[in-house]
Design a binder for these strands. Structure first.
Lengths: 344, 344
DNA sequence: ATGAAAGCGCTAACAC
DNA sequence: GTGTTAGCGCTTTCAT
């Protein structure tokens, strides 16, 4: 009966192999200048006993834990789950684990998480800040990569975000190509800065295309299906039926479709709906949701890579990934020539 | 300019407060028999410097990391994301962090994760095993709580799962109450044991209700929307159009709805569809998916609690949570009296 | 009530 | 190439 691997220390391996602690340690970390004999001996003992290095002790010396944190608003939201998946996949190959924190759009919760995270001594963190409260974390000079639209507010930090401006233009041009005018807009209200950036992109697009956007109809709502439904219902109650709805995220777009159905309005014949995210749930509705897709997995993937660079002492820059259009069934066919893409 | 909290040690606090290392440590861990003066002094210094205990060093001594692992097939699958959310919420309150591993239905991946997890010296793990390979982990006598249907294969381990048998009966009774006969079944094939349990429950129900189930039509498919669509398409190609489809999970049920639509079949008038999971995406389809819902968040929540009990040295038992029916739009109205519930 | 000292399991100088 | 030794930051006897 050999010792439980759990309780074996490097000292036991040393004794069993007739070598010293340090030599065993060297073999285990693949240091150069080790005799074949030592390597073999250690390998034997390890195989025999199932010994595993205690990573905690290693961490204590090296200061690195092999764990990074991912702080997102809601793991149960498909978009964020996809981002997590991307980061996760990238991390596995590096032998790194990911600690996921859902802040649930709650700044207090987020703060708790941030504290928990520096306490856990993670090597770095990928963060989508709910609000602007990054001050607490900045002082710990922990390697950080920002994701999402708040990146623009911290110009000196590494970040990866999707190109909202390009995405909005993509969507608005597509709407225009169906001969629809400016749509009404549904934006989330627990992601203020994201909404602002979205609307700003709309105005910029209008300016470039010489479209009058003085009478923009915008409704806020919670960042979920019910929020989208309620938001469109409010618009329907107070305005003429719009020709098109552009939601700043897919969940709200799905809600908008429900609101239309409830009113007996047909989509896309009466009202066109355009989403923003590209979540899988948009494929299963009738009609399927046409949407501007953010590269969610890629965002997670690139953010992780950037973070690793930063951890390794590199600079890690800012990255903007383009959006693409998932053409499905909630827009009418095109009637105009597609516009040339907007360039800055 | 005070020292960076990151580099401050308990020794610095000791020096600054004129106390000894040990006393400071005692104050910090709330030990009894400390003078008010010492408490005050330490509190001051901590407030002043922002000192934080190094959890890694603590872990090294105490053997506990304050981190638990959650191993699930796919974080991007809404059902599992919900489970994760439940566990997460429970963990926050306990000051515990959760390491999430997606095995992607891949036993090799899972094995990697399991190793990574014992290396990280987590305090315990909540696991939904892809296949039967739990041998590797059992030897580490790490506190473990199983979730999902495989729990039944490890009768001596703590577990929480949903009551498949009751859920299946619930669904089948509901189908029967609409005057529909036995449905065709769509089950996932990368979750063998779950599928078996599901079908077994079907047979048990048939026996209890005196229904002939000799000619059961069952089709396997990947555990996702496309898998469900393809599976039903295969059935449609080789059999008469069934009156009802019962999918072992919601994603496949959604796929089934797509297959029907593609064939020009109406749901629920031509074919009824019943799902199993209760994911949010089922609410947004037209018609919305009627489904037997597993208590996903609660599963995560209870699993975490059980795990904590086990970590604290308790036994932690086995727990089975009932399913409920989300009555939505993919079944025709009831025509028969509801059957009395099945009892064992 | 507090201090001194001995480790937790490992790595990294520093010797030889 | 390998062994010796001194910590990493903390908790916990054991004294006092």
């Amino acid at each position: 009966m050999t010792k439980r691997p759990q309780n074996m220390t490097i000292l036991d391996v040393a004794r069993l192999s007739g070598l010293s602690k340090s030599t065993v340690s060297r073999v285990l970390s693949g240091a150069p200048n080790i005799s074949e004999n030592a390597k073999k001996k250690v390998a034997e003992i390890v195989a025999e006993t199932g010994y595993q290095r205690n990573e905690i002790a290693r961490s204590l010396r090296s200061g690195r834990t092999g764990v990074v944190a991912l702080v997102i608003p809601d793991i149960a939201n498909p978009f964020w789950a996809d981002v997590a998946r991307g980061a996760q996949d990238a991390a596995v190959n590096e032998g790194t684990s990911i600690l996921i924190f859902s802040s649930d759009w709650d700044p207090v919760r987020e703060k708790q998480h941030l504290q928990a995270l520096v306490k856990s001594r993670v090597d770095g963190a990928i963060i989508n800040p709910v609000r602007d409260g990054l001050e607490d974390i900045e002082q710990f000079n922990l390697p950080i990569v920002l994701i999402g639209s708040s990146a623009s507010r911290f110009p000196d930090m590494a970040s990866v975000s999707s190109d909202i401006e390009q995405g909005v233009a993509l969507g608005l041009d597509r709407l225009a190509s169906s001969g629809l005018g400016l749509p009404v807009f549904l934006v989330g209200d627990n992601e203020r800065s994201a909404s602002e950036r979205f609307l700003q992109a709309v105005r910029r697009w209008a300016a470039k295309r010489n479209v009058d956007c003085s009478g923009l109809i915008v409704e806020n709502g919670e960042y979920n299906v019910d929020g989208g439904r309620a938001a469109l219902e409010r618009i329907l109650a107070t305005h003429a039926v719009p020709r098109a709805v552009f939601a700043a995220n897919d969940l709200m777009a799905l809600g908008a479709m429900q609101a239309l159905r409830n009113k007996g309005l047909s989509c896309p014949d009466d009202v066109a709906v355009l989403g923003f995210d590209g979540i899988a749930a948009g494929e299963v509705t009738t009609p399927a949701l046409t949407t501007v897709a953010k590269p969610s997995r890629q965002i997670g993937d690139e953010a992780f890579r950037l973070l690793m660079q930063r951890i390794e002492g590199g600079q890690g820059d800012r990255m903007t990934l383009p959006c693409t259009l998932y053409e499905r069934g909630t827009l009418p066919a095109r009637v105009n020539e597609p516009q040339p893409a907007l360039m800055d």
